[in-house]
Design a binder for these strands. Structure first.
Length: 187
DNA sequence: AGCGGGATTTTCT
DNA sequence: GAAAATCCCGCTT
């Protein structure tokens, strides 16, 4: 079923997305993955795209919880976020890494890589799942790209640290990942 | 295993 | 005009 916690804060959404699944169908091929690493961003945070207000690029982050915010960066990569919080408040959780559950061969083909390199990073997993700008604003309740509630992950198995690749608000503890999971981007 | 640089283009100042 | 929520490759140790 679709998660029921997405209208909460980005911090809580990022924490609770760990263990949830993403189901993707491409040309009758099915892929299932488990979310193992996330980061949270909201409009009070200097590192967030929404910190300086709404623009064409970030408008989806101000939309309904459960939409997908996809942005393009470094001239060649896409990254995706699950929109959190109340409508009108710019917040979301970046999906940084996923663990393949099924359809591994399909993702290996799109990535031209095998093993952990298939999905141990935010732009890598977007390539593995064929997520591009066409999915910006997509509602994750619907095929062909759906978010599904997963098994509960105990607090003892979750690590909370600083985020990766940002220059502002470096000390904020807004990154979460599943302890000892091989697909986490950095340890 | 770790470091450094290049790729490539949208977005915002 | 500079920076960017990144990735990959090649070089060094």
């Amino acid at each position: 079923m679709f998660p029921t916690f997405l209208d909460r804060s980005a911090d809580e959404v990022a924490r609770r997305l760990l263990g949830c699944e993403i189901h993707r169908v491409i040309d009758n091929e099915r892929i299932r993955v488990k979310i193992v690493e996330t980061e949270s961003y909201d409009q009070t945070d200097a590192a967030s795209h929404t910190f300086t207000g709404q623009t064409n690029r970030n408008e989806v982050m101000f939309g309904e919880a459960g939409l997908l915010y996809v942005y393009f960066t470094y001239g060649m990569h896409y990254c995706c976020n699950v929109v959190a919080g109340p409508e009108g408040y710019g917040s979301a959780a970046l999906i940084r890494a996923v663990e393949p559950l099924s359809g591994d061969e399909v993702m290996e083909r799109y990535r031209n890589k095998t093993g952990i390199d298939v999905s141990n990073g935010p732009a890598k997993l977007c390539q593995a799942l064929m997520i591009g700008k066409a999915f910006n604003g997509h509602n994750l309740r619907h095929a062909p790209l759906q978010l599904i509630q997963g098994d509960y992950v105990d607090d003892a198995d979750i690590i909370n640290t600083t985020r990766i690749g940002i220059s502002r608000a470096k000390d904020e503890l807004k990154r979460w990942y599943i302890k000892d999971n091989a697909y986490v981007s950095k340890r």
